[in-house]
Amino acid sequence: MDITHPHNIATHALEKTDKIFLVSMLDIAQKNLDVYWVLNEDSPHIIFVNVDVPEGKAYWLANHTKNNLIALAQYNFLKADFFLEKPIRVQKLIDLLKRISTEAPHLFLKTEMASKNNDVDIDLVLDYSESETEVFDPSLYLTGLLIKAVQSRTAQRFSLANSSSFLFILPEQDSCFTKNLDFSNLTDEQKMCYRSHIKDIQTEVVNANTIASITQKQGLKKYPIESFLWASTLYASRGRLLTGYSTKSVVQLKRWPDFSIFAHDPEHFRIAAFMLKKPIRLETIALKTGLSIEHINNFFNAAMINQLIDIKSNNENITHKQAQKESTKATEKQSLFKSVLKRLTGE
């Protein structure tokens, strides 16, 4: 065992007893592992997050796309790829660490991991001068502000880019409040608002009573926070993928997105159908649906931020040639459904 290059573990939101358990179990587990694991909060390769507490859950929500988080909880309600059950048991810890070493070797190639302190990340970002990059960084948009509000449990008002649009977030109720929205038909102005860069969003800390009073006075509607994480990510992505993913990434939806609370266009149903059925590459979905890869990427990011996606190993078993052939099939059923929808929507 090479103890000169240990794999570093950090923790987030762990209760004292859990941390003591982890340290002692790690000590016992060590003799059964090929790699030397050590608790090192400064430059972690992996982070155990206690998702049973709100702080840990918020941290998970903000950072799970970095793929170096291990959910620690009584049961795996977040469907995390890497999960450790509480109370911690030695054999399960050994199995988990072995799995991480073999299934996520890329985590240990990096010399510097992203900071585990997300507050610092976002604060740094506030001084960021916008430049369009190849990848989508959610912390630069409304998504980042929402996540930060959830993490800090702070009720806030966001006034959005050069418009009269505003949004209240009340983390203690897991809710946002704004004017009535039709998620199946957002206006261009609304879409522009949700794609706003943080430098164009004014934030104001408010208290819950103020929100309640304004909500009543102005007839605002209550929505889940997820609705705006989705909308902001969907429209701000502009075809760019989240860091760490490519159009060759093989993905699968964990479940069907609830489009009654998620902004969508008709094509999102088609993307969801392909993503739900079986593991599939993002580029294959584009090929099969005939939609642009940017459209697919935007949907993927929004679903990823809302923890609706499983990343699979790269074993998609369909060739592009097959996909192309299938995409040209116009079935009788499809045209019948189109006819039904035309009749129901009057379009």
Binding site: F269, R270, A272, K288, Q334, L341
Partner: peptide, 9 residues
Amino acid sequence: IQTLAAMVE
């Protein structure tokens, strides 16, 4: 119905 239509594919 939109979901059913998508699932046809």
